[in-house]
């Protein structure tokens, strides 16, 4: 009988550790061997000796951390290719979260565990879609693990933004969006809707947008907001990290409509508390329905939850006849790239 994944995949202070492979997944401190699911700062930390990840994730890590800090040695693994590490067969499949994001599939003596990293199930023009893999244990996130989180259609949210731009044609629309993934997705969605005017960027977003371009994601005419004069920004779309939206940086804009693109915008009091005038419910994480659909798709009898609102999800898993287990890993959850 194949060994239960409990016996060979263990939560440790540094993150999840695969014993027969000798590696961590998304280690939160510097370790010898790490497999990285995606480039967000809470999952991709600097200072590891050997890093294995998708080509795009490695490029994103180098761009954000600099060559040396993104792993002393870097090894790319192509989607679907199987690599034996120690006694474990490892492969990467798309997670649909941000460009390059992958689930880590591990097989050991006939037992299979999948670590999702962060993921979503909706279409995203900037990355490959989530692929469900049938397994014995599925390790999931639960950022939006409450049934009140049901993200609306992304198209409707983009339509809301475009409508606001016709109601306030003179005012710049300042959109707070995470630097990796969300910004590029919002830009790509705007482009797909036919918006082809220049889009202005906060300095912190420029490098990653350029990198996306190099990796084949065309985002159209992008310009720095910092050097643009006020009149050029009238009626324009400006993107900045969420923290900059309420910061001194935003004072360069004349009476902006402040928008934030995030799944958290679903809850009104939370949106209002952040001073947002136009909340855009656009998320790169699975909502409640997507979490439950994924549990069914991967057919795993046992689900481990790394971080997020796990109480409700684990309760619901019980109702669905699955065993839920909270790993309560410390160090994930804040995408960490905007502060």
């Amino acid at each position: 009988m194949p060994p239960h994944p409990e016996t060979w995949l263990q939560p440790r202070p540094e993150g999840l550790f695969c014993l027969p492979g000798g590696f961590f997944i998304d280690a939160t401190r510097a370790v010898d061997r790490a497999i990285i699911t995606h480039g967000h700062a809470d999952h991709a930390r600097p200072g590891h000796q050997h890093v294995l990840a998708s080509v795009e994730t490695l490029a994103i890590m180098r761009s954000r951390m600099g060559e040396g800090r993104a792993g002393i040695t870097q090894q790319a693994l192509a989607i679907g290719e199987v690599l034996r590490i120690g006694d474990v067969d490892v492969s990467l499949v798309p997670a649909g979260h941000v460009l390059g994001s992958c689930q880590v599939v591990m097989e050991y003596q006939g037992s299979r565990a999948v670590v999702s990293g962060d993921y979503k199930r909706r279409a995203d023009p900037t990355c490959a879609p989530f692929t469900p893999v049938v397994c014995d244990v599925f390790v999931t996130e639960a950022t939006f693990g409450l049934p009140v989180f049901r993200h609306p259609d992304t198209d409707k949210e983009i339509a809301k933004l475009l409508h606001s731009m016709t109601v306030f044609p003179e005012r710049p629309h300042l959109i707070g969006a995470y630097g990796l993934g969300k910004s590029q997705r919002v830009i790509a969605l705007l482009r797909a809707s036919g918006y082809d005017a220049p889009i202005y960027l906060h300095g912190a977003l420029a490098k990653l947008c350029t990198l996306y371009g190099e990796l084949g994601i065309n985002l159209g005419d992008l310009r720095p907001a910092t050097v643009a004069d006020k009149s050029a920004l009238r009626g324009a779309v400006v993107l900045a990290p969420p923290s900059a939206v309420a910061d001194r940086w935003a004072r360069r804009l004349d009476d902006p409509v402040v928008a934030v693109a995030s799944g958290w915008m679903r809850v009104r009091q939370r949106a209002k508390a952040s001073g947002v005038e136009l909340p855009l419910i656009i998320s790169d994480h699975a909502d409640w329905d997507e979490l439950l659909a994924t549990v069914i798709d991967v057919q795993a009898p046992e689900i481990w939850v790394t971080h997020g609102n796990e109480t409700a999800l684990i309760y619901q898993l019980g109702l669905m006849g699955r065993r839920g287990r909270a790993l309560s890993l410390i160090g994930y959850g804040d995408e960490g790239d905007d502060t």
Binding site: L146, P147, V148, V267, Q269, N309, T311, A312, Y315, Q316
Partner: peptide, 10 residues
């Protein structure tokens, strides 16, 4: 139970 957790959050 799920409603109680949700109400508590919202």
């Amino acid at each position: 139970e799920l409603f109680a957790l949700s109400y508590d959050y919202v």
